Simulated scan of single mutants.
Amino acid sequence: MERRAGSFAVFGLLALLAACAPGTAPTPPGPAIPAVEDDTCGAAPYARLIGQDATALERELIMRQVRVIRPGMVVTMDFSAQRINFEIDDNNRIARIYCG
């Protein structure tokens, strides 16, 4: 019985590690920028950055919470209506900007 409990513990640990593996965070669906009524984080002024290289963010002064999400990056599911999320695609371009 003790051996069986140990194997369940190992299985549970492996399942937990798999859940945290890179590339498991789903990309939230939606438009490239939030709709006006959903723009709680003030993302609209940064719409011009969509399609630009991610290094364009280095030249921006953004005085609020910001999160840059790269391909395969593990992202927490916490929601902050004031935070701007910049989603970077596989070509290192800004693909989407959204609040959360």
Results as ranks from 00 to 15, higher is better:
E2W: 05
R3G: 00
R3A: 12
R4F: 10
A5V: 11
G6T: 01
S7L: 15
F8A: 10
F8C: 11
A9T: 02
V10Y: 08
F11Q: 01
F11H: 00
G12P: 03
G12L: 11
L13E: 05
L14M: 15
A15F: 11
L17I: 04
L17Q: 04
A18F: 11
C20F: 15
C20R: 08
P22K: 03
T24H: 09
T24N: 11
T27Y: 03
P28C: 00
P29K: 07
G30C: 09
A32C: 08
I33F: 12
I33G: 07
I33D: 05
P34A: 10
P34S: 08
A35G: 06
A35P: 09
A35E: 13
V36Y: 12
E37K: 14
D38F: 13
D38A: 13
T40S: 15
C41K: 07
G42K: 05
G42F: 04
A44M: 10
A44Q: 13
A44N: 02
P45E: 12
A47D: 09
I50R: 04
G51Y: 08
D53L: 01
A54F: 01
T55E: 13
A56G: 03
L57D: 06
L57C: 12
L57I: 14
L61C: 00
L61H: 08
I62L: 10
I62N: 04
M63T: 15
Q65P: 11
Q65C: 06
Q65D: 15
V66A: 07
V66P: 10
V66Q: 06
V66I: 15
R67E: 09
R67D: 02
R67Q: 10
V68I: 15
V68K: 03
P71F: 04
M73Y: 00
V74F: 13
V74Y: 07
V74W: 11
V75I: 14
V75R: 03
T76Y: 13
M77P: 00
M77T: 13
M77E: 14
D78L: 09
D78Y: 07
F79N: 13
S80I: 05
S80M: 03
A81V: 07
Q82I: 07
N85T: 02
N85M: 03
N85P: 08
F86K: 01
F86H: 02
E87I: 06
E87C: 02
I88D: 03
D89W: 06
D89Y: 05
D90K: 14
D90W: 12
N92I: 01
I94C: 05
A95I: 03
R96C: 07
Y98R: 10
Y98Q: 04
G100M: 02
